[in-house]
Amino acid sequence: MKTYSALGAAIALAAVPFLVGLNEYYLFLVTLILLYTTIVVAWQLIGGYGGQLDLGAGAYHGLGAVVTGFLMVNYGVSGWVGLLVSGAAAAGVAFLIGYPSFRLGLKEVWYALSSLALVLILQKIFLLWTDVAGPLERYIPYAEFDPVFMRAGTKIFYYYITAALLASTFLIVSRIRRSKTGLYLISIRENEEAAEMLGVDVRRYKLQALMIYSFIAAVTGGIYASMVGFYHPTLFDSWISIQTATLAIVGGLGHLLGPPIVSIILLTVQEYLRITLGAVIIGLHQVIFGIILVVIIMFKPDGLGPLIDSLARRFPASVRR
């Protein structure tokens, strides 16, 4: 059963470019949707399991874009290397901010606020740091098709990279969920003191979750920069932070399938609204998106995960019959 659904998901992911008729613009949109979904899935580690409402996604995503872009532009370093370096850099920043925060017992609203502050601080630092970024967009050298440099004219290249990243992120996260680390993280979310008394090194596990998630968020940023062909400090985007956390919550905190499914659906709806309404009134699509989020959070505080579960239970049964 599990292998079938995995196979189905893989085929679906592989087929998407053909379903959108290999249209470059649509390919760009679906790649974006998968990139943001990847961040949501990775966020589960710190937010869904660890219970820390992290709003730093924009910081790590931006760091990925800037570091990968900087290496590609200034040193001609392959984007693949850039992804790894920027992931490591993001994990390093996560450690620098996470270690004192967790050690000093920052949590709940205060943790959320401090992580959001990080996004804006990094944005301004890179705005002022003109050797690396600065107020002007920096363009990555164009290549028609250079898989080694990780640069291509067609978006399908980035689509498959992103699809592979999403799939591996999902596998990593579901593996961690089933492991001792996942169990420990959930126990921290449920009750820190009780977890600690059972021998859980609360700080260490929170930090681990934060570092893995920030690494993946940075990789999405690097792919993004290479795909659009430039980087800029505005890629330290607080909107990504907020979007990530809300989608994960709407999908169901700590639910494995809910967040990615909900992200893909809602982000698609958002893009659809943007294409149809965005031209009429700028921002209207996000007003509707905002209303959808508020309504779901108000009326389904546990998110849509449980709903998806019950649908999933019904579906195979009707097929078998």
């Binding site: 959930i186 126990s187 979310r189 449920e190 009750n191 009780a194 977890a195 859980v200």
Partner: peptide
């Protein structure tokens, strides 16, 4: 308690 966990998971921690 770990409200969001089963008894089995709780004891497994």
């Amino acid at each position: 308690p770990f409200f969001g966990m089963t008894v089995y998971e709780t004891v497994l921690v």
